[in-house]
Every structure is written in structure tokens, then in C-alpha cells.
Amino acid sequence: KAKLLVLLYAFVATDADTICIGYHANNSTDTVDTILEKNVAVTHSVNLLEDSHNGKLCKLKGIAPLQLGKCNITGWLLGNPECDSLLPARSWSYIVETPNSENGACYPGDLIDYEELREQLSSVSSLERFEIFPKESSWPNHTFNGVTVSCSHRGKSSFYRNLLWLTKKGDSYPKLTNSYVNNKGKEVLVLWGVHHPSSSDEQQSLYSNGNAYVSVASSNYNRRFTPEIAARPKVRDQHGRMNYYWTLLEPGDTIIFEATGNLIAPWYAFALSRGFESGIITSNASMHECNTKCQTPQGAINSNLPFQNIHPVTIGECPKYVRSTKLRMVTGLRNIPSIQYRGLFGAIAGFIEGGWTGMIDGWYGYHHQNEQGSGYAADQKSTQNAINGITNKVNSVIEKMNTQFTAVGKEFNNLEKRMENLNKKVDDGFLDIWTYNAELLVLLENERTLDFHDLNVKNLYEKVKSQLKNNAKEIGNGCFEFYHKCDNECMESVRNGTYDYPKYSEESKLNR
């Protein structure tokens, strides 16, 4: 008799109507990190870190770059004969040098303040090359056809396309004075040089004057150069050297050249137009028929994500570079809930034993079982409120962090190594801060989002509990077992918050 009662009780308990509160689960393989956990499985997430590029040089917003090819900045601007293909260059979106560009200054020497000139050019998007001192009329008392084997072109001695090597005419090199007034309405880049012979005999042979000088002056520039005559090792078949100089001439300003020898005179100059998204990159990537809004030396990035880990040097509207390998923000729920887990921000989770793959029309909802059958029903209101809140948060985070910009490298010469090392340390410090901030932001927001979901499920549970009161009992896994019969209409009233407690209280009292 006792065995019969136990079996009867078990049958009745199993047959009781139930309603459970749960949440969506799926077959997603997404994982995120939080402050407290690593690799948390979630139903949905968004990636904030771009880690792919196309490996190509592309047009930037429809404008092609200027590819210097086998030449570098120095060779292009001075007019190395091997860089003749660059003479027609007028406009570009950015400038590309190759790491091993070999054609710079063909006659050995240095372009002074080269690093600063590169910085200036990094904001130039177009130029006009014009004859600042016409070759045939500007130097009537001097020979202007100086050439050298060091600047050979097609097997013949030649010289820079933008400079003139002035030497004596006959047996004399009379003092020369020439000036140019900038009437271009924009900055003009003027380049010139000073020749330093290897011996007094060479000085006399070329310029006749043993104590020659070169003077260059404008409103913002004033220097006097004296040739340094000295024996030097042979470089590119030359014992002599040429140093090259430049200045930016403001609109309306005048530049005056005065010399008694050794002047490498300007022939062509450049009127410059600035462009905020221009820059110089060093890259071996090849040019393709493609378009982008962000270019790196590795390749083009076409992404609206706020961060990238491809390269710190970028041109155009680019994500911020960070050292992170993963920045994924959760938008959905835990896919593998932890039992009795309390989140960092106070939300209680884990009283549900598992997510439901059968509930596909919402994030949170119900599963019921009664004599009429069983089924899932999503709670659309709480789901939609959660979707709206999380979507707004993700968009806000992306908008705040998605300050796209150009980031170019800084140039230092060989004598500025300590400054370069200090600059690298400062840049590394800023990069570490950006990386830390980005990672911390994602970790915190992921923790908040998961706790937010847990709290929403808990609130749904409490909503049902407050309606049923003692007409049902909690069975410990997020479910309630009714003390009365609850048909589909009754189940719907529980879900929509209109459950009639008094209607079922007498039946429940008897069954309790």
C-alpha cells in the first residue's frame, strides 16, 4: 500500500503543469573576455578590431598615390635624371617610397634638414613645378651647363633637372645676384646647392675665386655659405661634395641669391598645395585598381571598426592602431551559463540550468507544459528593451572611439638618435595607453552587458513569482510547478501579467 502511494505521488508530481523562465541559446562559437572571465561563450557579439588588409596600394578616395619607385624624396625633388618619370607629377593622395629606393642625390652630399622637408611634404597633396630662374636668361655671365658622370643618364654625363651647376664663363666668375618674388599665391619650395671641391685647383678651375661665398636671403631665411675645400674619400667617382638646401617662400615674399662661386642654382621650384589627408609611407606593396579610405604600408583597410592592429602608420580615415589581438564586445547572452554566478555589478545569474535553442524569437521568455502540450514563448517587451539598450551602447562606444585619422611616422637624422629613441618611447607609451583603454573598455562593457542580461532574466522570474504567489511552488531551476490546472489561456495570463490569483487560489489551497 505504501509503495502504491509513492508511485501515485510521483505520477501526480510529474503530471503537474509547469512554467519556466529562460533565455535564448544557439550554436554560436563566439567568445568574449570580461573583467572576471576569459573566453566566455556568448550567443552574439561584435568585433571592434580590424585585423585584415588587402595587401595592395590603392587610390585614396579615388585619387591615385605618387609612387616614387626607384627614387626617394631627395632624388625626386632635386631632379635626379633617373627620376625623370616623376617630373610630370602634379597631385596625389599620398606618397609612396620603397624601403630600398636607390636614386637620391646622384652627386654625393646631403639634403640639409631632410627630415623636416619630409614632414612638410606629408601635408602636401599637389604642386606646380615651374621655372623659377629661366636657364637661358638668368645667368648671362656664367656657364650653366655643368654636368657630371655621377648623374649620368643613358650613358652620358648629366645633372639634376631642377638645378643648374653654374661655373665660370671664360676665365671669370663675376659676382651674381638674382631674385624671385613669389607671385603664386601659395608657398613655394625653393631648392639650391653649394659645391665643396676637393682641392684649391678644382676650386680655381671651376670658379676662378679662391674665397667664394654663397648667400641666400628671404624674410624668414638668411644664410651665408662658404665652400669647404678638403680631400675626401671618393664616392660615386667624386672627391667633391654638394650640400643641398631648401626653404619655403611665403606668398609675396622675395628670395635673393648672391654668389661669387660654388652656387648650384635653382632652375625649377614648386608651388605647394596642402592636403590634410596626405602623407608619406614606405612600402613594398604594389599598386592595383582599387579604392580605399584608409591606406597602410601593408595594404588598404576598408573598415568602419574603431581599432586596427595592422600597422601604426596610416593615411586617410583609419581606425586607431592598438596592439590588441582581440577586441570583441558582447551583444547577446551567455551561451554556457554559470550556476549560481554573481556578476561584478550585482546581477544574479545561473538559476537557469541552460539556455534554450528552441526559443528563437527572443532573448528571454517562457517554456510551459500542461495537458494541452508544451512550447516556448519569447517575452518580446523585455527582449526589445534589451536590444535597444545594447545597440545604443555599442553604437555609442564605437562612435566615441571611432575617431579616424592619419598617423604618419616621424623623421630623425643620424645625429638625432637620442631624440628618436625618446620619441619611440613616448609613442610606445601612448600606444600602451590606447591599447589598455580599449581593452579595459571592452572588458568592463562585456561584464556589464552579461550582468544586464542576467538581471533581465531574474526580473522576469520575479515578475512571475509575484503573480503566482503560493498558487505554485519554485522547483529550483527557474521553473514553477502549479498547484492547479493551468491551461493555455492561464499560461498566457502569466506571461502577459494578467494572471488571476484569486481564481485559482482555492484549487491551489486544496492541492498544497
Score class of each variant (00 low, 15 high):
N162D: 06
C106G: 01
P81N: 06
V12M: 05
V147H: 11
K56S: 00
I35F: 12
V6I: 14
C71G: 03
D17Q: 08
L87V: 07
L248P: 00
L78A: 10
I19R: 02
A41Q: 05
H153P: 05
H195L: 02
D113E: 13
K3W: 12
S218C: 14
G62T: 08
Y268I: 08
L189D: 05
V194M: 05
L60F: 06
P134D: 15
P108W: 13
V149G: 02
Y23I: 10
W92V: 02
L87R: 01
K175W: 08
G193I: 00
E187K: 07
Y207G: 03
A231L: 14
G275F: 07
G210D: 14
A265R: 01
I95R: 03
S138W: 14
S125W: 04
T34P: 02
D15K: 15
S91P: 11
G193D: 07
I112G: 01
R129H: 09
D201S: 11
S205F: 04
P266Q: 07
G69Q: 14
A265Q: 10
N100I: 03
T29N: 15
R232L: 01
W192N: 00
R161D: 04
T226D: 04
V216G: 05
K234R: 14
Q120N: 10
C71R: 06
L48H: 08
N182T: 06
R161C: 09
A2C: 10
C58M: 12
S215R: 10
L191P: 04
Y245F: 07
W246R: 00
G22L: 05
S85V: 12
S218I: 05
V46S: 01
E82P: 00
R129T: 08
L166Q: 01
S205C: 11
E228Y: 13
A10N: 11
N80Y: 02
P81C: 03
G252T: 13
N27Q: 05
D17H: 06
L117T: 05
E37S: 13
L117Q: 10
V96T: 07
D51M: 08
E37V: 06
D17I: 02
I63A: 07
S278D: 04
R223C: 09
D51K: 07
F225Q: 12
S158G: 15
T98Q: 15
N39G: 12
S205I: 11
T14C: 15
Y180P: 11
N103S: 11
R241Y: 05
V42P: 08
S215C: 03
K186A: 09
I95E: 03
I112H: 14
L36F: 10
E115Q: 15
A25G: 00
S85M: 07
L60I: 15
K3R: 14
V46E: 05
T98A: 14
T29W: 15
W165L: 05
E37M: 03
R224G: 09
R274T: 08
D237S: 10
K156I: 13
T31P: 05
D113H: 14
A230T: 15
E258R: 12
G55Y: 03
Q203C: 01
H153S: 13
L191E: 01
I132M: 15
A217E: 00
